[in-house]
Computed example of a mutant assay.
Amino acid sequence: MTPPDTSPRRIIVTGCDHAYFDLVMELVASIREHATTPIGVIDCGMDGGQLAQLHAQGIRVISPYIPDYAPIRAVERRPSLAINICKLWLDQMLPDFDLILWIDADAWVQDGRAVEQMFAAAQGGALAIVPEIGAKIANLLGVRWICPGWMQIRSFLYKNATRARLPFSIRKQIGAKPLLNAGVFCLHRDAPIWPLLRRWQARILPRRGMAFTQDQLCIALAVYIDGAPVTFLDNSHNYIGPWLLDETTGKLANLFFPHAPVGIVHMASQKTMRAALHHTITVPTLTGGAAQLNIRYGGMRQRS
C-alpha cells in the first residue's frame, strides 16, 4: 500500500492586468524551466483571450479579494491596485495550499534553487523575504541634510508611515530599518503573521493614496513593530540590480563576489524595458566589457 503524501502543498502566485500579461507569461515559462509547482495568477483586468491562454496552460486563475475597508473608487480607477491588496489575503484565498510563494509579474526565475530556498525558509512559519541591504549601489538610508549635524530621514518606510498618519513613536522605530521588498516573499498558510498584516492593512489602507504601497509598509510593521518571525534571504532571491553579465554562462550575475547567478530577477524601476523587448540597457560584464541587454526573460532567451 502506497503511504499518503505528506509533503507540503505548494503554489507560486502572481497577479496582473492586461498590460502585464506578456510579463506573466515569461514568468510562467521561467518557473517551468525549473519546477512543476502549480502556478496561480490573480486576475485584475485580463481580457478573455489572455484568460484562455492561462487556462490552456493549466494555470489557476484567481479572483481578487477586496476587503470592505479598501478604497473602492481607487481600485475601480486602477484595478491593478487589487494585486497589492490581495497579497495580504493569500492564505484565505488559497486554502488548498500550505506554502505560498509570491513573485511579482515583473520578475522571473533564472536559477530554480532560489525558489526551493524560499519555500524552505518559510516552512517553519516565518516570513521568507529579502531586505534591501546591499542590493544596489545607493545610500543605505535616504536622508536630506539640513545643516552640519542635522538631517531629515527620507526612507521609504518613514515617508509612507508619515503618509499613513502613524504616530511618531512608530515612525521612529521603522524609519531607519531596511525595506522588506514585497515583490518576492513566501509564507506558510498557518504563519502567525497573516492576521498582523491584515490588522495593519485595515488601519492604513483607507488612508488616501496608500493602496499602492501599503503591502510593504504592513509587512515592515508586522516584523519590526509586532515582532513577527522572519527569515531573511540574500539579495539573489529578489535581485533588483546593479546588473552584471557573466558572458561565459550568459546569465545575470550577482554584483558581489563570487558573482553567483542571480536567482530571481526583479525588474523594478525598469519601466521602458518591461514595455518591449527591443529596449535595452548597458550592462557591464565580468571581464570588464559591456553588453546591451534587455533583462526580461524573453530578452535573455533571445540573446542566448
Score class of each variant (00 low, 15 high):
A202G: 11
I295P: 03
K177A: 03
M93T: 08
K271V: 15
E132D: 13
M25C: 12
I11T: 09
H266Q: 05
L27K: 09
R208K: 14
R303L: 06
L205W: 06
F232K: 05
I146M: 09
S63I: 11
P178K: 00
Q123E: 15
Q117E: 15
M210R: 01
G289F: 07
R301V: 13
V283Q: 08
P167T: 00
S236A: 15
A74H: 04
D22V: 00
P64R: 12
R10L: 00
R165Q: 13
W200V: 05
W145V: 13
L245T: 07
D98A: 06
P67N: 02
A176G: 12
N254M: 12
V130P: 13
A161Q: 02
P71V: 04
M267K: 03
L286H: 04
N84H: 12
I103L: 13
I204E: 01
P148L: 02
N139V: 06
E247V: 13
R301L: 13
G241Y: 01
P3W: 08
R207P: 00
P71Y: 02
C218W: 02
A222K: 03
H188I: 01
P95Y: 11
D104I: 06
K271P: 00
N181K: 12
A70Q: 06
R60F: 02
Q123I: 10
T162K: 13
D111F: 02
W194P: 07
G15Y: 04
P206W: 02
E132W: 04
R203T: 09
L196T: 09
P131R: 09
I204K: 03
W200Y: 15
W145P: 00
L54C: 12
A122M: 11
I103R: 08
A182M: 07
G183N: 07
P178H: 00
A52N: 10
I137H: 09
I39K: 08
K159Q: 15
D111C: 10
D226Q: 11
S269Y: 10
I153A: 07
P242G: 06
H259T: 06
Y65A: 13
H34A: 08
L179G: 01
E26M: 11
T6I: 07
V13C: 06
D215H: 11
S80W: 13
F256R: 04
E26W: 03
F21T: 06
T14I: 01
Q117K: 10
A121Q: 03
P206K: 02
A105N: 10
L90F: 08
L196S: 14
S269W: 11
P95W: 12
P229G: 14
C218Y: 04
V24G: 01
D190S: 14
A253T: 04
A126P: 05
